[in-house]
């Protein structure tokens, strides 16, 4: 319907059959021209360092002496390292609980902001503020004050009949605190959801409403499919980010993963091994194990995405 109007008076430029091969070559050429900046960046900035770290994973390298080949030793040692196993446990809990909670919060708030109420601009900015503050070094002081003895969380929870006491110093409560910190910074996925919601044509909703579809059904039948590429993006990226969480763990725990190892996230331990203990070979092995695990999860996600991610621009 719409394409008709866009199609101008000029003759259609469908290539004739003999030109097909030439057209393919042209498509290749222009494809690589568009890809050129990324290709340069990939080879100069990323691929080399990645291969270097892969090599280092099989060496004993302490930054000060030349790397020494040790085969699989770094990898086998991982299994005997109680702190490594602790970091795996901490990270898995964080990924499995934190990611869905954060995404649900971000989607809920994005829907709220997309509901067409007044003052949206104000709310949108205010809701993004946590993400800005969360990236500042001062977040360590601010967040701990919220969760200390007599901090706001303690006051509210005690008021509601909960047990008094701050969460910061309690190894059993630091994980919920870290998950709340991540959830509180729902701004980034929220903005992406919002941008995705803007791609959903209003007409579809209007038409469905007229046909008698309730809000819930419209959400399920129109919003979710139209939003699925963005949901997929957020799910994948937030999962990867949760696996690699570093900055917040570093500043909140003062860089050591305490108390009692309860915030010893994978990449934090990797950093401590690599830079504090100068065991870069060991850290590289850790990095590649993590990369393989995330890679596997990513591959599964891409595979299954065919079933539920719907692209308007692509026929199935």
């Amino acid at each position: 319907m719409s394409t008709v109007e866009l199609r101008g008076p000029s003759a259609p430029a469908t290539p004739a059959a003999p030109g097909l091969k030439r057209a393919r070559r042209a498509e290749n050429r222009i494809g690589y021209a568009f890809l050129a900046p990324w290709l340069i960046g990939f080879f100069v900035l990323t691929a080399g360092p990645m291969l270097a770290s892969l090599y280092l994973a099989f060496t004993d390298y302490n930054l000060f002496r030349a790397p020494e080949w040790v085969g699989l030793e770094n990898f086998t040692r991982l299994l005997d390292d109680p702190r490594y196993l602790q970091s795996v446990k901490v990270t898995l809990v964080y990924v499995l609980i934190g990611t869905p909670v954060k995404l649900a919060a971000a989607l809920a708030v994005a829907l709220l902001l997309n509901s067409g109420m007044r003052g949206q601009g104000f709310y949108r900015s205010a809701f993004y503020a946590p993400s800005l503050i969360g990236a500042s070094v001062s977040i360590a002081i601010v967040w701990k004050a919220m969760f200390s003895d007599a901090g706001i969380v303690d006051v509210v929870l005690t008021g509601l009949g909960g047990q008094p006491g701050g969460w910061v110093g309690d190894p059993d409560k630091t994980m919920p605190m870290m998950i709340l910190l991540a959830t509180w910074q729902f701004g980034a996925p929220m903005v992406i959801f919002l941008a995705g919601l803007k791609q959903v044509p209003k007409e579809l909703h209007e038409a469905a409403a007229v046909d008698g579809a309730g809000a819930l059904r419209r959400f399920w039948n129109i919003t979710v499919p139209m939003l699925s590429p963005v949901i997929f993006f957020n799910l994948l990226l937030e999962t990867i980010n949760a696996f690699q969480v570093f900055a917040s763990a570093y500043v909140i725990s003062g860089g050591q993963g305490g108390p009692a190892g309860s915030t010893l996230f994978y990449t934090l331990y990797l950093y401590l091994r690599g830079f504090q203990d100068s065991r870069m070979g060991y850290a590289s092995a850790m990095a590649w194990v993590l990369a393989l695990v995330i890679g596997l999860i990513t591959a599964v996600m891409f595979r299954t995405s065919n079933a539920w991610v719907h692209y308007s621009g692509e026929s199935k």
């Binding site: 200390s148 003895d149 701050g166 110093g169 003062g254 305490g258």
Partner: peptide
């Protein structure tokens, strides 16, 4: 001073 409180007060 308890370990909990010491952690809370950091840095």
């Amino acid at each position: 001073v308890s370990a909990e409180r010491t952690t809370q007060l950091l840095p």
